[in-house]
Amino acid sequence: MTTTRKTLLGRVRDHDDSAAWSEFHAIYAPLLYRYARGRGLAESDAEEIRDQVLEVVVRRMPEFEYDRKRGRFKAWLYRIASGRIVDAHRRRRELRADSGELREIADPAPRPDEVWEREWRAGHLRAAIECARRRAGGRDAEIFDLLLQERPVSEVCALVGVNANQVYKAKARVLRAVRDAMLRFDA
C-alpha cells in the first residue's frame, strides 16, 4: 500500500498524524453517539459514553494491532462501546436488584448487534458523503444532494441549470469519491 492510499486506521495508528485523528473523530464520534442513543441512553449519557470510548481508543490505539483483517477494529470498538453502555445503564439505575434492571442488562434495546451493524455502515457512509462533497465541489455536490432528496432528474436539471446527462455524470463522480473514501476508511 502506498502512503497516499494508506487507510485512515493505518494513519491513526501511527499516532502522529493529526489530520487523520480529526477525520477519525469526525467519523467515530457521531457513530458512537448514535449507537449509544440507539441503545437507549439519554443525550447527555450518550455524549459521555462517546467521549469515554474515544478516550480509550486514543489511549490504546497504538497498541491495537490493526492487522488489515476486516472487522477486527469494528469488533474491538464494539466491545469497548457496548461495555460502557452496560455500565451507564447500571449507574443510572444504581444497584436496585429488581427485574427491570436485570432486564436491561439482559437485553439492551433493541439488539446490540443490529444497532451496531447499522450505525457502523451508516456512519461510515455519511462520513464518506461528506468527504465526497468536499472533493467534488459546488455544483456536483448540489446535484448530488438534490438526488439524495429523491428529486426527479428533470427537477434537478431545472434547479441547477444543467441537462440530464450532466446530472448523471455528476452523480457518478460523487459516487466514485464516496467509494474512494470508503476504501480509505476500510469500512
Binding site: R121, A122, L125, R126, I129, L147, L148, Q149, E150, K171, A172, L175, V178, R179
Partner: peptide, 18 residues
Amino acid sequence: EARRHDADLFAELRGAVG
C-alpha cells in the same frame, strides 16, 4: 454494470441519510 454499481451504492447512501 458500472451504473448498476452506482445505483446500488446510491440507494444505500440514501438509506444512510434518509
